[in-house]
Computed example of a mutant assay.
Amino acid sequence: MKYNKIVKGTFISRPNRFLAKVLIDTKVHVVHVKNTGRCRELLIEGATVYLEDFKDNLRNRKTRFSLVAVEKIIVRNGKEKVLLVNMDSQITNKVAGEAFENGAIILPNFDKGYYNIRTEKTFGDSRFDFYIEGARKDRNSKEEEQIRAYVEIKSCTLEENGCAKFPDAPTQRGVKHIRELCGAVKKGYLAYVIFIIQMKEVSNFKPNDVLHPEFGIALREAQKYGVNILAYDCINTEDSIRVDKPVKVIL
C-alpha cells in the first residue's frame, strides 16, 4: 500500500484524539491523526513524523495533512536505533486485503486458496472486516471441502522491548468482536483475528492484559473455542506499508 505525497515534520502536541500540531518546515500545522488510540509512546514532543499531503485533493477536508507514521527510538543489543512505525489504523484493512491477494497472508485451513473475498460483512450484531470463501482437502476423501470464514483485523502500534501488544486503549468494541467470532464458529464458520503489527523489530505478540484484562480473557477464550489468532509484522517506508512475516502469538 502506497501513499500519494508524503512530507516530513516534527510532532509538537496532540490537543485531542483526532488532531495534532506538527511543525512542517517553519510553520505549525494542525493535522489529522489517523489513529484514535493513545499512542503515547509514539507521539512524543520532538518526534519525527510523516504526513500525507492532500493539498491537491482537499475536497471537504478540514486539514491539509494526515499523520501516518512516526520514528521511534528503540534499544536493541544495547544500541539505539530508529524504528519507523506506521500508525495509520485506517490503512490496515487495505494492507491485509493486499496480503490475501498476493499470498503474504495464508490463512490456516485454506490450503486450496481463496475464491471469494468480501469486505465489511455482517454477522450477528457485528460487522467483520472480511468474509472469505475457499477450499481445503477433505480429510475423509480426495474431494475439496468448501469453507467459509470471518476475519477481523486489528491495528497494532504498541511495542515494548520487542513485544507487540494490543490494545493501547480499552476497547469494548474489540471484546464484542472477539465474542461474536465465537458465535460464527458455533454456526460452522471458520474465524480469525489478525493483528497487523505496523512495524518490524518485534519477536512476539501478546494481549495487553495490564491495560485491558477483559480483552485478553476474551482472546484466550476465543482461541479455546476455535478462533485462530494470528499476527504479522510489516515493512514500512516513508510512503508505503506492506505485510511481511508472521509473528509468534503468546497467550
Results as ranks from 00 to 15, higher is better:
residue 1 M to Y: 09
residue 2 K to Q: 14
residue 2 K to H: 12
residue 3 Y to D: 01
residue 9 G to F: 02
residue 10 T to D: 03
residue 17 R to Q: 15
residue 25 D to M: 02
residue 31 V to L: 00
residue 31 V to P: 00
residue 31 V to I: 07
residue 48 T to E: 10
residue 50 Y to L: 04
residue 53 D to C: 06
residue 54 F to P: 01
residue 55 K to E: 13
residue 55 K to G: 04
residue 58 L to Y: 04
residue 60 N to T: 15
residue 63 T to P: 00
residue 66 S to Y: 05
residue 72 K to S: 04
residue 73 I to V: 15
residue 81 K to Y: 09
residue 86 N to G: 11
residue 86 N to A: 09
residue 89 S to K: 08
residue 90 Q to N: 12
residue 97 G to T: 05
residue 98 E to S: 07
residue 99 A to I: 00
residue 100 F to A: 05
residue 104 A to K: 13
residue 105 I to L: 10
residue 106 I to H: 08
residue 107 L to N: 08
residue 109 N to I: 11
residue 109 N to F: 13
residue 110 F to C: 07
residue 113 G to L: 07
residue 113 G to N: 06
residue 117 I to T: 04
residue 117 I to A: 03
residue 123 F to K: 04
residue 128 F to E: 07
residue 131 Y to P: 05
residue 131 Y to N: 06
residue 133 E to R: 13
residue 137 K to E: 13
residue 138 D to I: 04
residue 141 S to Y: 05
residue 144 E to R: 12
residue 145 E to S: 11
residue 148 R to Q: 14
residue 158 L to Y: 15
residue 158 L to V: 09
residue 159 E to Q: 13
residue 164 A to K: 03
residue 166 F to A: 11
residue 168 D to Q: 12
residue 171 T to E: 11
residue 172 Q to H: 12
residue 173 R to L: 15
residue 178 I to S: 13
residue 179 R to T: 09
residue 185 V to W: 00
residue 190 L to V: 01
residue 194 I to T: 13
residue 199 M to F: 10
residue 201 E to R: 02
residue 202 V to G: 09
residue 211 L to Q: 06
residue 211 L to R: 01
residue 219 L to P: 01
residue 225 Y to C: 15
residue 231 A to E: 04
residue 233 D to W: 02
residue 234 C to D: 05
residue 241 I to E: 09
residue 241 I to Y: 01
residue 249 V to Q: 10
